[in-house]
């Protein structure tokens, strides 16, 4: 057992992990990536009236500095490779939220020739927020659910 592993074990056991998760849950930066109708609501969710900043959740433009990827709409065949790259560029620990029917199951475009129907096949999605598009309040609810999940270590990512 190397020293690093030992340190990890100690962290795993003790309350330090809780402190880590407290920090992570209160500082969720999301990737600014408007993709569809939900993208507009995402824009509003980050702006004044709904103000995600209250929860320490602010938009960043580079995937390197983000913690959560919001799939905010239709994922097309052409866009999927790009999107996977973006996901790979994000540093661990990272989470993924699927917003809207299109991101969850294809939604109204379930039978389109160009839409990827089940994003859960490609990304380990933590929170699904249904709606077409969901209201910004639902975004906030989803964010709080994610925070709760991180706090209770139920994201099964072994962070």
């Amino acid at each position: 057992m190397t020293t690093t592993e030992k340190i990890h074990q100690i962290i795993e056991m003790g309350p330090i992990k809780n402190i880590f998760n407290w920090g992570r849950k209160n500082s969720v930066y999301f990737l600014m990536q408007p993709m569809g109708c939900c993208g507009v609501e995402m824009f509003v969710f980050g702006a004044a009236p709904y103000d995600s900043d209250r929860f320490g959740c602010i938009p960043r433009n580079t995937p390197r500095q983000t913690d959560v990827m919001i799939i905010s709409g239709y994922l097309t065949r052409k866009y999927l490779p790009v999107f996977k790259n973006l996901w790979d560029e994000m540093p661990e620990p990272k989470w993924c939220i699927a917003i809207g029917e299109c991101a969850i199951s294809g939604g109204p475009f379930y039978d389109s020739y160009n839409i990827v129907q089940n994003t859960a096949d490609h990304f380990p999605i933590d929170v699904f927020i249904p709606g077409c598009p969901p209201r910004p309040e639902q975004f906030l609810e989803g964010l709080m659910n994610l925070q709760e999940k991180i706090k209770q270590r139920k994201d099964k990512r072994d962070y």
Partner: peptide, 11 residues
């Protein structure tokens, strides 16, 4: 503090 803890424990 939360931001700092998160950044410290990032990959």
């Amino acid at each position: 503090g939360a931001d700092a803890i998160k950044l410290f424990t990032k990959e």
